[in-house]
Design a protein around this nucleic acid. Structure first.
Lengths: 188, 188
DNA sequence: CTGATATTAGTACCAAGTGCTAAAATGGTG
DNA sequence: CACCATTTTAGCACTTGGTACTAATATCAG
C-alpha cells in the first residue's frame, strides 16, 4: 500500500500546504514510512521543519498588520475646493486597495474617498452622512488614479440637510457615482 | 536601574504584545534579569512559551474558513459566518475612527465594515459591489462596539447578482442599514 | 547477480523550553 | 539590628522536534 517516492513527495507537499502544523512523526505514520524517510523527503523538497513552517505562517500574518483604512481627515488628496459648491480629490489606487485575487479595488475605498470629500465640501463645523446611494459603475484597478468630484446639489437650511453628488472618474471614464444626504452641524 | 517586579511584568506583557517572537533569553537581557526570573514572570502571568505563542499567532490566521476573502481584507472581525446565508462581524470604534471634534465615527468605516462583510458572506471566487443604498441611523461614538449582521436576501444566478442587507447595531440600537447589490464572479 | 536507488536505524547534538530544588539577595517591620 | 517574607538566581534532569551524520538494509532494474 505504499506510494512511490515521487507520489509520496507530491502528497507531502499537498498535505503540508493544507496543514503545516504536522510533525515528521505524524507524517511518517500517515505515509507508513519511517521518520527518516520523511526527513529525507523534506530535504529534497527543501521543506523546512515544523517550527520554521509555523513561524513563517505566523510572521506572514503578523507582517500584514491589519490594514485599516487610512485615518486622516480626508481619504485622497483634495486638489480643488469651493466650499458649499464643489470639490475635487485624487486617490491613487495601490496594491493595498485591491483584492489580491484580481486587482480590483475594494468598494469601500472609493466610498471613503467620495464620502470624505462630501464631508469636506460642506462649510460647517461638521457634517454627518445620513443616507447615501452609490453605484460602482466600472471596476477600478491598481495603478488607476481616481478623480472624485463632489457637487452640492441643494441645501435645506431648515432641516440642516445638504444633498451632494460625487462622481469619480478614471481617465474620463466614470467608475463611481454616489448621492449623499448630509446632516450639517452648525456652529453653536 | 531595574524595574520593580510589577513594572517589569507590565512591560513584559506589552513587549510580547508587540512582538511575540522573542525568547526568554532575549527578554532576560533586555530587562537585565535572569532567564529564570522571566520564566517565573511568564508563569505568574500565564504567558505561554515562545513556540506556543508563535503557534497561536499562526493558528489564528490559518484556522479561518472564510472563503471569499482572506481575513485580513475584512474590516472588523468576523465572528460567525454561514456562507451564502449570513455573517456577523464586530468592529470596535476607537479614537482613530472618529471625528476629533465630536467623537462621532466617520461614515466610511461603518460602510467598510458592512461592505467587506457583504463580500465575505458570498461563497464565490470573488464578489464586487454593484450598487448600494445606505442609511446612517444613529451616530456611533468612540468606544462603541459595532456588530454588523449581513443577511443574503436573494440571489439571481442568471445575472450573477446577489442582494444583501447589512444591519449594524450598537447594544441593540440599529446604527446603520445598508442594502448591497453584489456581482459575483463565479469560480472557473 | 550486481549496482544504484531508496529506506531505515542509530547516535550525538541543538534550541527553547518545563519542573523541581535550593541557595542567595533584597526589603520591609518590629 | 535581627528576622522573615518576597524576589531573584542557579543548577540539573528531562522534553519536543528537530539537524547532521554514518551505516546498515531493502528493493528494483538491467
Amino acid at each position: 500500500m505504499k506510494y512511490t517516492k515521487k507520489d509520496r513527495q507530491q502528497l507531502l507537499l499537498e498535505t503540508l500546504e493544507k496543514n503545516p502544523f504536522i510533525t515528521d512523526e505524524q507524517l511518517a505514520s500517515t505515509f507508513n514510512v519511517s521518520v527518516q524517510t520523511i526527513r529525507l523527503d523534506r530535504m529534497e523538497l527543501s521543506i523546512p521543519e515544523l517550527r520554521e513552517r509555523i513561524k513563517s505562517v505566523a510572521a506572514h500574518n503578523f507582517g500584514e498588520e491589519v490594514k485599516s483604512l487610512p485615518l486622516n481627515e480626508v481619504i485622497g488628496e483634495i486638489i480643488d475646493i469651493d466650499l458649499d459648491k464643489q470639490a475635487i480629490s485624487i486617490l491613487d489606487i495601490t496594491q493595498d486597495h485591491v483584492f489580491a485575487r484580481n486587482g480590483i479595488a475594494r468598494g469601500h475605498h472609493l466610498f471613503a474617498q467620495a464620502n470624505s470629500l462630501a464631508v469636506a465640501v460642506i462649510n460647517d463645523e461638521l457634517a454627518l452622512t445620513r443616507k447615501s446611494t452609490i453605484t460602482f459603475v466600472k471596476p477600478v484597478k491598481a495603478g488607476d488614479r481616481v478623480i472624485a468630484k463632489a457637487v452640492v446639489l441643494s441645501s435645506d437650511t431648515e432641516k440642516n440637510s445638504t444633498l451632494i453628488e460625487v462622481t469619480s472618474k478614471v481617465e474620463n471614464d466614470t467608475v463611481f457615482i454616489g448621492q449623499f444626504s448630509m446632516y450639517r452641524v452648525t456652529k453653536s
